[in-house]
């Protein structure tokens, strides 16, 4: 098994593991990922936020790599040494990428349904600057409907290509894709075609930003006012394992369950997502795990008992 060292922590990983996956195995200093999605073939490499510095190529060929590499698409070699947060060059480049991602982003978080669970928001919070140096008009698109359940806010899109990969890999009839070129590329169906497929709703779950949102949930609440609960049902199409998002007694939306990297644990079908919004449809398992740092966890049940400071507050 190849041995790789990331930010001075060494780990043995199976051959073919990427640097990013190796970092996830270590669990610390994991490079962020906006376009990479472990469950989608061919994803990654595009957003460039996961760039890292390879200071030693391998035991066999110890030369450093000349440029920063996308950790999500670079396989580890035995003896490889990688710098992520310990490299000022990486931090600088990442800051640059975040700035580029925000250049044309509308920053309309106050009216965006994704706010509170948006990866771009997290990323900007961590790496972004308080002020933009971009002084020009942002590119704008009209909002579009992709079918009757999904809203496309192209202005917010960062062109991660995940949704087209979902459409390509989970569904048999691909009707949407990336149109145009360069700065004005857009996700679109070209001639307003509905995506009529039982798994199309997963495009919402894989979208790292608020470009694709669930129309049945649109403007109903802020995510941090809702309570996520794990539940399941017997479904013939998917695993039926979901997260229900409650406000009071009402199920406002249904999504797949997310793992600690924000990826769906299993893709769910549209019936579970859109048509089963009564508690009686589900067997409730219990509160969903929400990262303590997430805004969603505020006022909620998963008590941060390990922190003495907060404990004090609670008393």
């Amino acid at each position: 098994m190849p041995k790789v060292t990331i930010d001075d922590i060494t780990i043995d990983v199976p051959a073919g593991t990427t640097i990013l996956e190796a970092a996830r195995m270590i669990g610390e200093n994991v490079p962020p990922a906006m376009c990479y999605y472990s469950k989608l073939k061919g994803s990654g490499g595009k957003c460039r936020v996961c760039l890292v510095k390879v200071t030693k190529g391998s035991e066999k060929d110890p030369r450093p790599m000349p440029k920063l590499v996308a950790s999500c698409r670079t396989a580890v070699m035995d003896g490889m040494e990688v710098k992520n947060v310990t490299s000022p060059e990486v931090i600088e480049a990442r800051k640059g990428v975040v700035e580029f991602l925000l250049v044309n982003h509308p920053l309309d978080c106050p009216v965006c349904d994704q706010a509170g669970e948006c990866h771009l928001q997290d990323l900007s919070y961590e790496h972004g600057a308080a002020k933009s140096r971009y002084e020009f008009k942002r590119r704008t698109f009209e909002t579009r409907d992709i079918g009757d359940k999904i809203k496309l806010h192209m202005n917010r899109c960062i062109l991660c290509y995940r949704c087209t990969q979902v459409a390509d890999q989970l569904t048999d009839q691909r009707v949407h894709g990336v149109l145009g070129r360069g700065e004005v590329s857009e996700i679109s169906t070209y001639i307003e075609t509905a995506i009529d497929n039982e798994f199309s709703g997963n495009m919402i779950d894989v979208c790292p930003v608020g470009a694709l949102t669930d129309k049945t949930f649109r403007f109903k609440s802020r995510v941090w006012f809702t309570k996520p609960v794990y539940a399941h049902r017997n479904c013939t199409k998917c695993t039926g394992k979901v997260t229900l998002w409650y406000q009071g007694e009402e199920v406002l939306r249904v999504t797949s369950r997310k793992d600690q990297w924000g990826e769906s644990e299993a893709f769910i079908c549209n019936e579970c997502r859109y048509d089963k919004k009564a508690t009686s449809d589900w067997k409730i398992e219990g509160p969903a795990h929400v990262d303590r740092h997430s805004v969603i966890s505020q006022n909620h049940y998963e008590l941060p008992f390990e922190l003495p400071v907060t404990q004090k507050k609670l008393q």
Binding site: G45, K46, C47, R48, V49, G96, V97, F100, L101, V103, N104, Y134, F136, I158, L159, Y161, V178, G180, R181, G182, E183, V184, S185
Partner: peptide
């Protein structure tokens, strides 16, 4: 700017800027 394919963010956003 005209010829950037738009796939990766630094080139897509940076060339126009």
């Amino acid at each position: 700017h005209h010829e950037s394919c738009g796939q990766c963010s630094p080139c897509r956003e940076g060339t126009g800027w």
